[in-house]
Design a protein around this nucleic acid. Structure first.
Lengths: 116, 116
DNA sequence: CCATCATATTCCGATAACGGAATATGACAA
DNA sequence: TTGTCATATTCCGTTATCGGAATATGATGG
């Protein structure tokens, strides 16, 4: 075995929301439960793609569904977003502080030439 | 061309922080600037891996560096985390509501404003 | 220049992830 | 049951991504 591949990814909320279409799904679901076909249509994706994304979201616990006739009404379960909000919030003071120092620092960098 | 692959990913902050080791790097940098080797050692990763992760973080603007002797001191630039915080924050009321009340809340939403 | 330390890049193999198309499953109704 | 609608899964091809190892680049001091 020469190359060890990356660790599992889609298995947590951070990765689930890394995909733009999945973010779109979550955003849409704030307005209420919706069947798969509705989501697919409103977001301009195929039904299989919608189902696949919903599967990922379901596996990380960000959505749930409820059978309603032959449809499945998918709904938001935003509790899994809370840890993310908290983690990112841990950096709040770093973007909130008046960054006189940072700004001048960045200017400085531009002169010195930063990579790429 | 039969199968079209996924869209670019590591090119935005959402994907950058989807990787646990990169989150660790960012968390460490809250304590101040650090050279690559320090980061690698403290996080138990190889130097090339640290460099690669730093490259991703640099490309999405979450870190910057400053040459100090033969070292490169990497520092946090958390401004790119703000949009993420805001996006996730848009779901705050949904994880604050308990589930029984969530349904009625959604009903409420539908009456109040029908938009997106 | 040369040696050395710090960092970046390249090459590689394995695997995960995405999109599309086709197909399978499931639930209902007649 | 059969038919139909809604959804899920499977198969396929392409590309992204990660880790490791080796190597290349870069800066500094003598």
């Amino acid at each position: 075995m020469v190359g060890m591949a990356r660790a599992a990814t889609t298995s947590d909320a951070f990765n689930a929301i890394a995909e733009p279409q999945r973010r779109d799904i979550l955003a849409l679901l704030r307005a209420g439960e919706r069947p798969v076909t509705d989501l697919a249509q409103q977001l301009g994706m195929s039904q299989p793609q919608a189902s696949k994304h919903l599967r990922v979201l379901r596996e990380v616990g960000l959505v749930r569904f409820r059978g309603e006739g032959k449809q499945r009404l998918y709904g938001l379960d935003a509790r899994g977003l809370r840890p993310i909000h908290e983690w990112v919030g841990g950096f709040e003071r770093f973007w909130n502080e008046s960054f006189d120092r940072l700004d001048s620092y960045v200017q400085d960098l531009k002169q010195t030439r930063q990579g790429e």
